[in-house]
Design a protein around this nucleic acid. Sequence first.
DNA 1: GTTGGGTCTTGACGGCGTCAAGATCTAATC
DNA 2: GATTAGATCTTGACGCCGTCAAGACCCAAC
Lengths: 203, 203
Amino acid sequence: MTSATPYHHGDLPRVLRAAAAEVLAERGVAGFSLREVARRAGVSHAAPAHHFGDATGLLTAVAVEGFRYLTEATRAAAASSDDPLDSLVAVGRAYVSVALDHPGHVAVAFRWDIVDVDDPDYQDWGNQAFAVLEGAIERLAAERNPDLDIGLASALCWSMVEGLLIVHLPLAAMTERKGGAAVPPIPDLAEAFTRLMVHGLAP
Amino acid sequence: MTSATPYHHGDLPRVLRAAAAEVLAERGVAGFSLREVARRAGVSHAAPAHHFGDATGLLTAVAVEGFRYLTEATRAAAASSDDPLDSLVAVGRAYVSVALDHPGHVAVAFRWDIVDVDDPDYQDWGNQAFAVLEGAIERLAAERNPDLDIGLASALCWSMVEGLLIVHLPLAAMTERKGGAAVPPIPDLAEAFTRLMVHGLAP
DNA sequence: GTTGGGTCTTGACGGCGTCAAGATCTAATC
DNA sequence: GATTAGATCTTGACGCCGTCAAGACCCAAC
């Protein structure tokens, strides 16, 4: 063992978070169960409680990890271009890409009813993720539309991308599953949404 | 009794749907329980199964009712003005108003993981609700922007309003509860979003 | 070597969804 | 009007769930 391997199991909290994200990705929020998580981690059914208190605690930890992924990915995307529009588009693509790569994490990030919204880490990383988007909007406004209400526009983009994930991602999966008409990749849809929103539906 | 009062209880399915919506509104999807619904309806814990099969069946029935409310309200709103922009704005306001008036119904409408997405009524009323929005977009395009991709724009608006409900509605409730800064009414926010989207962030 | 505290297990409890079996009631038939 | 058939609802049971209390275990410091 290297330096700071904890007591018995070797960073059980990390294993539990990963197992929880796996269960969430496979069975959705409705199919989530603490006991199933414990089973996959190879520990007893009451082990998670010691680290996370209860189910809400574990789900909150997963949600925080999700916000962390979102923050890091969108931050890198925002810095990927000097053109503010390209930068904003990249942020949108990065956002949905994280949701595709970590479906279990993002599935709980906005589930206020099953997460502890008063958790400091949850609020902190949630705010950071939002701040990245706000920064991208701010640069767009500075260069192209100084009169833009940045708070309103950021909230709009945030809603748009979250609605995209909730409404169209499962819808696309469903029509795909049924062999329906081919559906464009979700990141492309996010880009199309972003460009249409910046341009305006009827400017 | 009038004409066709059913057998024992007097339209138990209707009572169960109402009780389910009540529980959903009070405790959220996570706090939902078939037995609690049965308790409120004054019947035994297994009674709902006879009419709705299982929990998914009852939740699907509530979701269908939600889509019905959405369809009716937005249809009336769309017809409330001859100006296509005002009409679209009214549709947006009507949508979130339904969500405020029937929180239990709308809470399950898009929960693909706990609802039977193959249910014909569910698909039918979901499509009808979407068609109303699409019609409003179509009129806007005809009058002001013939080049608009109507399917894309409709999907964007749909995502926007749904994201608004999921992200900002509980967020507003939370900051309100904590005595934070006053938050604009959600229908006003929906209107601001709509106008900003039509106009464009940086046209 | 002993002691202490963090880590995990075991066992129990009530609540849940679901199923099978039976009771109860309505409506149609004779 | 009595009987029968079928829909409606109840009762009881099962396994799974989250949570709690108590105890076993194990590492680390003394």
